[in-house]
Design a protein around this nucleic acid. Structure first.
Lengths: 212, 212
DNA sequence: CCACTAATGTACGAACCAGTACGTTAGTTA
DNA sequence: TAACTAACGTACTGGTTCGTACATTAGTGG
C-alpha cells in the first residue's frame, strides 16, 4: 500500500479544496486563513497558490464545487408517477431534507450573499444556470399539470414556488442561531423536524390549492 | 450655530456606532476595518477604543442597536380592530415592508448567524427577549381569536407562523444576489414587490385556514 | 538511465491591522 | 482663574497574513 505517496496532483488539489470549503464555510471569506487551510492539509501553502492562484480563486472554486455537489441530489428526484399535489409535497420534502443535510452549503451561500454575489456573478453561466434550472423546470411541469386538472391557482410560476420553499428551508438552518437566542426555540431540534417538514409541505400545497 | 463643535461625547459615540453599523453590515465582522470606521467618522480610532473598548465590543454594540431600532417599528402595529384573517395579512405585510426597508439589519443578522450567534448569545436577555416577543405575542392572540372562531387550524403556534413569515421576507432580501445570479430574477425588483407581498399573505392565510 | 518537467517544500518579505503609549485641549468646578 | 478631568489626537508597535523567491525531489519520456 502506498496511499501516502508523495506525488498526486489530483489528490492534493482535491484535499485543498475540501479543507478550504470547510474553512470558508466556517469563518467566512475574510475570516478564513490561508495558512490555516494549508495547515489542515497534508501539503503546504505553496500548493494553494500553485493550484488555485490565490485566496479569492480558492474561495470561488470552493463555492463552485459546492453548487456542483448540490446538483446531483436535485436531479435524482422522481415524481413522474405522482399526482400534482403529492409531487409538490415530495419536492418540498426533498428540498427540506437536502438543506438540513448540507448546512455548509447554506453557509457558503450566505457568505456569498454578504459579498453581494460578486464572485458568483463572475462564474461562467454554464456552471450555474444549467446546473440549477432542472429543479425549477420540474416544478414548472408539475404546476402546469396541476393547473390543467384545476387543482392549482394561476398567477404563480415555478420560480416563485421554488423561492418560497427555499426560503423556509434556508431560514430554518441559516438563522437558527439568532432565532434560538431571541425566541428560545431551536429550529433544527430533531424533535421538531417532522413538524416543520410537514408544515412546509402543507403551506405550499394549501397556497397553490387556494382560490385566487 | 455650532454643530461642528469640538467636545460632544454623545455625538461622537453615536457617530462611531452609526458608521460601524454600516461598515460591519457591509464587510462582515472579519472584513470590517477599525481604521476604516475611524476614517469615516469625524474622530479618530482612539475614540473607538475609548468608548467601546475594542472591535468586538463595537460590533456587539452595533448589533444591539440594530435590534433596538427594529423593536420600535414592530410595536406600532395595531390590528385590534381587524378580524383574524385581516390581522394576519396585516402582520405579514408589515413584516414584509419592514424587512425591505432595513437590508442592513438583515445583513447584520446574517453575519451574526455566520458566527453562530456567539455574540447575541452573550447579550443580556432583557435586550433580546423582551424586545422581540411583543410581535410574537400579538400573533399568538390573533391565532387564538381565529381558532376560537373556527377560522384557523390548530397544531401551529405563533412562533411557527412568525418563522414562516420571517423566512420569506429574509430570504427575499438576504439571498437576492445568489438567487438572481442563478435564476436571473431580481427578487427585490419594485415591479414584483406587490406580487411577493400578496403571495406571502396568501400563503400564510391559506395555510392557517386549511383543514389539518 | 539521463534529462526534463511537474509537483512540492522552506524561508522570507511587505503590507496590513488591532490595539496602545503618550501627549494635548476643552470645558467645568471650586 | 487655577486646578482638574473628560474628551480627543498622534504616532507607533507587535503580531498577523497574504503572497513569493528560491531550492528540491519525484516521476517520465527519449
Amino acid at each position: 500500500m502506498d496511499t501516502g505517496r508523495r506525488r498526486d496532483a489530483a489528490r492534493t488539489r482535491a484535499e485543498i479544496l475540501e479543507v478550504a470549503s470547510a474553512e470558508f464555510a466556517d469563518q467566512g471569506y475574510a475570516g478564513a486563513r490561508v495558512d490555516e487551510i494549508a495547515a489542515r492539509t497534508r501539503t503546504t501553502k505553496r500548493m494553494i497558490y500553485y493550484y488555485f492562484g490565490g485566496k479569492e480563486q480558492l474561495y470561488v472554486a470552493a463555492l463552485q464545487a459546492a453548487y456542483g455537489r448540490i446538483r446531483a441530489a436535485e436531479q435524482e428526484v422522481d415524481v413522474a408517477h405522482l399526482g400534482p399535489v403529492a409531487a409538490i409535497r415530495r419536492i418540498a420534502e426533498v428540498t427540506f431534507d437536502h438543506h438540513e443535510a448540507n448546512p455548509d452549503f447554506i453557509r457558503l451561500v450566505s457568505i456569498e450573499n454578504i459579498h453581494r454575489g460578486e464572485h458568483i456573478a463572475r462564474m461562467p453561466e454554464a456552471d450555474l444556470v444549467s446546473l440549477n434550472t432542472p429543479a425549477v423546470d420540474l416544478l414548472g411541469e408539475i404546476l402546469e399539470r396541476g393547473r390543467g386538472q384545476g387543482l392549482f391557482r394561476t398567477g404563480v410560476d415555478a420560480l416563485d414556488v421554488h423561492m418560497a420553499i427555499s426560503a423556509f428551508c434556508v431560514f430554518r438552518v441559516a438563522n437558527r442561531h439568532t432565532f434560538g437566542a431571541i425566541f428560545g426555540r431551536d429550529l433544527v431540534d430533531p424533535d421538531r423536524r417532522l413538524h416543520y417538514r410537514t408544515m412546509l409541505a402543507d403551506m405550499i400545497v394549501s397556497y397553490l390549492s387556494a382560490a385566487e
